[in-house]
Design a binder for these strands. Structure first.
Lengths: 232, 232
DNA sequence: CCATAAACTTGATGCAGGTCAAACTTCGCC
DNA sequence: GGCGAAGTTTGACCTGCATCAAGTTTATGG
């Protein structure tokens, strides 16, 4: 986009650092600011009737709640920091004004939205088509692929959160991980060791249309993170 | 958008009528055409490992698989007609070219994508936060609201498909509907009769952030249809 | 380095919802 | 209008996963 327009956005926006566990956004609130994670990580979650579930974890550098800002509609998800996190906030009205003025910016918005949409669809497919054991297995395998196929890595998030993201209870995740030891993967604490990739793959049946990656991916950045310091 | 540009798109595209049950799109295929339902209805579904689930039903007038076209990526979902359906097909390359040339068109694309994104997020929240009984109850209630709060209406889709959309088996849907008779709604065949709205509402706990509608909604049109002849 | 809380694990138990099988009903079609 | 196929319902059964209740390990902070 035009440098002048970019500068204008920067001027209107500001950057702030938040402590861990801080609620940045309450679901249902009007979309005041587009948020961009510069550093750290943010959990997006849904709430309903005293229940809560993790929808995604946003890693740098990535926007979140873009769609709400664009439609000037209430946030569908809440957001809280998972660690000390630096975030840039751009007034939603400036975002809406800017993609009317700057064609390049509009294109970037389109691409980001399309990527986000596909990301949620993938996640929804995984939830509806796989059982929890298969979801865990494919998650573990995917994390390995994202780290260039290493056989060992550490989980990027707490198991409690991972369980919620995968649509299961922490207890069930714990048990599932134990039973997966017979299927090619061992998890000790946050350490994952793939002992038999072929076997784990046979069980997980990873699918490009669920587990990605998207061919021309620009910077999806929504979903559980590839690694602690991942770009998306 | 500019009339000349609009005409150019129309020239490149064509309209075709398909019989019921025809597979329009196979998931994983390259995104050749943006599809627009002009008449009839189309099911979007996901497949994995010999399993299948309904993701959405598209009613006129609405686009589908826009995101795949934009990213020039493979379709994440398959699509089939549910009845005799008239569809406009616009070459994906023309769509991509057009929103680069025409700012107004780009804005329309942004709005459509944002609406679609929010639609999937709502659906994902419903799946993760509600049990099947609650999903059925809120679905029945929502259909009533969409038909301006009538106490009686006919289901817009087959129960088999509805079950899949709601993430349950047809058997379980059938049983759930039976047990809901004690909670303010009776379903006879495809006929829904709300006998005690307050009671059903207490059970369904409908939520604006899951069941909509989106405040400034333009034409979301993805999800199960409000009615057979609905605009969305 | 210890105290406390939080996260994680393990076990026992129960139920929501899936599966299988068999009827019954509805619908499209000749 | 009757036949076959598909959709729907019902019943019996079972299992995957949630829940509840301890325990154990791991972080956090003074």
């Amino acid at each position: 986009m035009a440098q002048a327009h970019f500068d204008a956005l920067l001027t209107a926006s500001y950057v702030q650092t938040f402590p861990p566990g801080l609620e940045l956004i309450r679901q249902g609130d009007p979309a005041d600011f587009l948020h961009i994670v510069l550093d750290g990580s943010v959990e997006l979650f849904g709430q309903w009737a005293d229940r809560e579930c993790t929808m995604a974890v946003v890693q740098p550098v990535s926007t979140f709640i873009l769609a709400a800002c664009i439609r000037d509609a209430p946030y569908l998800m809440g957001a809280r920091t998972l660690e000390r996190t630096r975030i840039m906030l751009i007034p939603a009205s400036d975002v809406r004004a800017m993609f009317r003025r700057d064609g390049e910016f509009a294109l970037a918005v389109i691409d980001e939205l399309a990527a986000s949409y596909r990301s949620v669809v993938r996640s929804a497919k995984s939830m509806k088509l796989r059982n929890s054991r298969e979801r865990v297995a494919s998650y573990l395998l995917r994390q390995s692929s994202l780290a260039e196929g290493v056989a060992s890595y550490t989980l990027p998030v707490e198991k409690r959160l991972l369980a919620s993201y995968l649509g299961m209870t922490p207890e069930n995740l714990s048990r599932t991980l134990r039973t997966l030891e017979g299927d090619g993967v061992k998890v000790i604490g946050a350490r994952v060791i793939i002992t038999d990739r072929a076997r784990l793959t046979a069980l997980a049946r990873p699918d490009r249309l669920i587990d990605g990656p998207d061919p021309v991916a620009t910077s999806a950045g929504v979903g559980l993170p590839p690694s602690r310091d991942g770009g998306g």
